[in-house]
Write a protein that binds this DNA or RNA. Sequence first.
DNA 1: CGTAAATGGTTATCGCGCATGACAATTATG
DNA 2: CATAATTGTCATGCGCGATAACCATTTACG
Lengths: 157, 157
Amino acid sequence: MPRAFASVPTRLGAPDRRLRQLTSYSLKRAYHRLQSDAARVLEDLGLRITTYSALAIVCDMPDLRQSQLAEALSMERSNTVVIVDALEQADLIERRRVEHDRRAYALRATAAGRRLCDQATEALHRHEAEMLAPLNDKERGDLMDLLRKLDGGVDGS
Amino acid sequence: MPRAFASVPTRLGAPDRRLRQLTSYSLKRAYHRLQSDAARVLEDLGLRITTYSALAIVCDMPDLRQSQLAEALSMERSNTVVIVDALEQADLIERRRVEHDRRAYALRATAAGRRLCDQATEALHRHEAEMLAPLNDKERGDLMDLLRKLDGGVDGS
DNA sequence: CGTAAATGGTTATCGCGCATGACAATTATG
DNA sequence: CATAATTGTCATGCGCGATAACCATTTACG
């Protein structure tokens, strides 16, 4: 641990006062903390964040197409290709051809995929609980609600 | 806008039920929305998010060193180099040599830098208000508090 | 004092997440 | 039937951040 100078203190008092006024800034900081933790958790399971997210969606919504997956993940469909490739090569999901439309694929999780997804989901919840330690139960719920409201605010009627 | 199929609805009902249970997921989605909006706002001013953040910190804390900047931004000091380079080349900040330590630089914003920073800060607050539209005043405050708590929970007593 | 360790800045390189733009194959539509 | 729209794909680039190795300088210590 570095010692403080006489004139220049090492721990300066909040050099980011201005930034702290921006919700985006605090959001970004919180995001990075949770995200890098989640990445570490998933790494042990051979997954990355995008890869896990896609797997989870495919598990919960079988026979989804890649474009729909992209829409669900709010990303461009071109990016889903490599994600689905990775999941397919790991035998976690399958690309099935769909009847009546030879362009599209119907994505479906394998048994191994569903198993790994459950495992990952549980591990994530466990670690997330630690990251959310500074918040009590009500605060966690509030945070969830607020974040969801920011994200399109679509709540199933 | 795509029309819905008869059998396969385009808007399928929340394919990410499972992910929605994770705070990290909602956090990530909210982050991306606010972040890309902020990036667009700053682009018009010739700034990027990292570049603006660094500028804001230097403005509020003159004669900061690059390592301290890195610490304030929670990033490795190597990454601050290119950021400071960009700001210096744009004449927004200066690298001053510091007395008694010829290794370090004291970063200081120029008049133009402070002006641009104020401009950017105001623009960001304006746009952020729009992004936070689905939240009322209390909710915005709550969100801020919760995010800050997640981020080390250091509140200046 | 002199050598070793710590510190500040720099460079090169890599990884992840995501966007854009173009493309071929297929399907829908006027 | 010709044209438009849709699906998946590929190549490429950008932004952000991490790691590792490297000097120059400063500090600590035997």
